[in-house]
């Protein structure tokens, strides 16, 4: 199988006052194209840092990240931004929608940044898919938490990404809404063949992915394939 993400010997340290704080230590793993992959671990284990480095939102102190065939260390910020825009989708725990844009406009943003011509049509289709066709002109403040996260899902898929990173996508949602969002993610993964990388505390959710990476204190505890095929 083709590897869409290759992480090798990743190290990340932050300065905390006068001390150096090592958040990730010698982390290496690979994710296959079209796979569903989860990263689990207690708070402070380095999950979000790992996701940020894998998506090219930050640069490591040591080690390499290869995403969609590009070694991120060799790209500058604008080149990494372009790669994200073309190949990557994001979903955050706190939705991170632009408050001044309507649902439709929020979903259009990645395509607009590419300069795509039919951004609005594509955004409408996606909002229809997530069941928000009658809420397209609403602002984030006029939507419920679940609806906002569905807009975020639609946005994440708007540029037809090869890989989607989701950071605690159900963390702010009730069980029922959370389940709807997860179902949506898996359906879109199936339909479009998008690789899913999910960070979660929810072991049940992790168990539904094909591979689980367990982190603790910035180190990999286990990296196992699940029974899910």
């Amino acid at each position: 199988m083709t590897k869409i993400l290759k992480i090798n010997g990743l190290e990340k340290t932050y300065k905390s006052g006068s001390k150096q704080l090592t958040v990730l230590h010698d982390v290496s793993f690979e994710v296959e194209k079209g796979q569903t992959f989860s990263i689990v671990g207690p708070s402070g284990s380095g999950k979000t840092t790992l996701l940020g480095l894998a998506a090219g939102l930050d640069t490591p102190n040591a080690g390499t990240v290869e995403l969609c065939g590009h070694i991120l260390n060799t790209l500058n910020e604008d080149e990494r931004a372009q790669l994200r825009n073309e190949e990557v989708g994001f979903i955050f725990q706190d939705f991170q929608l632009l408050p001044t844009l309507t649902a439709l406009e929020n979903v259009s943003v990645p395509l607009e940044l590419q300069g795509a011509k039919h951004a609005a049509t594509r955004a409408k289709e996606l909002l229809q898919k997530v069941g928000l066709e009658d809420r397209i002109h609403h602002y984030p403040s006029q939507l419920s938490g679940g609806e906002q996260q569905r807009v975020a899902v639609a946005r994440a898929f708007s540029n037809s990404p090869s890989i989607l990173f989701a950071d605690e996508p159900t963390g702010n949602l009730d069980e029922e809404t959370g389940e709807k969002v997860i179902q949506l993610l898996f359906n879109l993964n199936e339909e479009a063949g998008t690789t899913l990388v999910i960070i979660t505390h929810d072991l049940d959710l992790a168990a539904r992915t094909q591979q689980i990476l367990r982190l603790k204190g910035g180190k990999i505890l286990t990296n196992e394939t699940t029974a899910v095929i």
Partner: peptide
């Protein structure tokens, strides 16, 4: 956020 979604400088 725009940068995360792929906006260039």
């Amino acid at each position: 956020l725009l940068r995360t979604l792929g906006a260039k400088n």
